[in-house]
Design a protein around this nucleic acid. Structure first.
Lengths: 200, 200
DNA sequence: GAAGTTAAGTGGTCAGACCAGTGGCTGCTT
DNA sequence: AAGCAGCCACTGGTCTGACCACTTAACTTC
């Protein structure tokens, strides 16, 4: 066979290289020429692989300086996705539905595991949906859920902007403070789900 | 300034070209050489732009034939994103916890939306956990949830192999057939969650 | 010591070459 | 006329070498 394309192979090799070297955000990768040399491929193949990594938001290239690891979170990919893929109603429905389910899980988990420190943090967080709910998801103490939520939220931002009255944040905080999980869920359903279902 | 990179410009130009020409899935794009000629850029820049479009799932390249529009829907992007999101410090606990939550959601959704066709499909599916539950997730009719579950399951397989007695599959199918959502959830909790919590 | 200059290294881009598939055309055989 | 084999033009895939624009650091000069 050997029909697998070089730039795909190269993509995964660079990816593995990053993992094995344990590169952190800000760290520098070898230069394109060195990568091409080390991996025994042409520089153009290395570049095509790097483009993919760049699009995924893992790396960032600075002309004259080099290629650097990027902090997780700012994937410009999501922006592109928004304009390309989330056009259909079906995709939007899936997105909203999934986001709501994940958020309800997170809310419940957070309520159970909320520490006093995290509670204090939430009280100091500005009253925008993204900031506020991010704190909640962080309070679940489940990194995987956080990552999933971050991506869903990025997608979501390209479809809607959710603004809620300040009562929502106040009531939610009260419920969380008292660890009333059912009440917190009820508030979520009352404010968020109602608003979302209207939009559809 | 005019420092914007050529391959980015090219990316948008090709995108506009696709829109203006009203290209449909299956249609062919101009060859790389012709694009380079028409847009007055080098072929390598065209290729880097095409790689981005390919990653977004908009086009597909076939050696010897050309570049073609791809049908919407199979955005492998989400798949790719998923595998990147879920890498790194994926704690076993986080993984199992998240997977269980997602599966409970899917089970409930599937139970509500199960069509007779899907039910028939499930009955014909082999009694392994992956095959069986994949059918259930597919029955949710939510593509995004399916993607998330597939990735979670991929990682889970590296940690653990879940084998359940045939009673599980029989009882679950009975519950689904009668659309008894609570009972299905109860069966899930009885067999799967119990087994998982033991392992931890 | 500070300012300016130079050189090496890096990503960005291009042109040209060759390879490896694909598909259509031609011309031969039957 | 039908079918087949072979040729050839075209496509994406890859490599190379060359230049440009830019950054950094070492070096020179004052």
């Amino acid at each position: 066979m050997t029909t697998s394309k070089v730039y795909i192979e190269t993509f995964w090799q660079i990816h593995r290289m990053i993992e094995e070297a344990g590169l952190q955000p800000g760290d520098r990768l070898p230069s394109e020429r060195e990568l091409a040399d080390r991996l025994r491929v042409g520089r153009s193949s290395v570049r095509e692989a790097l483009r993919a990594l760049e699009l995924l938001g893992l790396i960032e290239t600075r002309r004259g300086e080099g290629t650097f690891m990027k902090p997780f979170g700012d994937h410009q990919l999501i922006q592109l996705l928004g304009s390309f893929i989330l056009q259909g109603n079906r995709e939007k429905r899936d997105l909203i539905e999934t986001k709501i389910f994940i958020e309800r899980i997170c809310l419940q988990l957070a309520c159970e595991r909320l520490t006093d420190e995290k509670l204090e943090l939430i009280s100091q967080t500005e009253h925008t949906y993204n900031s506020f709910f991010r704190r909640i998801v962080e309070a679940t103490d489940n990194y995987l859920l956080l990552r999933i939520w971050l991506v869903l939220n990025d997608f979501f931002e390209h479809v809607y902007t959710l603004t809620l009255p300040s009562e929502f944040y106040e009531q939610m905080w009260m419920a969380l403070q008292k660890r009333l999980c059912e009440e917190a869920t009820a508030i979520y359903e009352q404010y968020v789900m109602q608003k979302m279902s209207k939009e559809n």
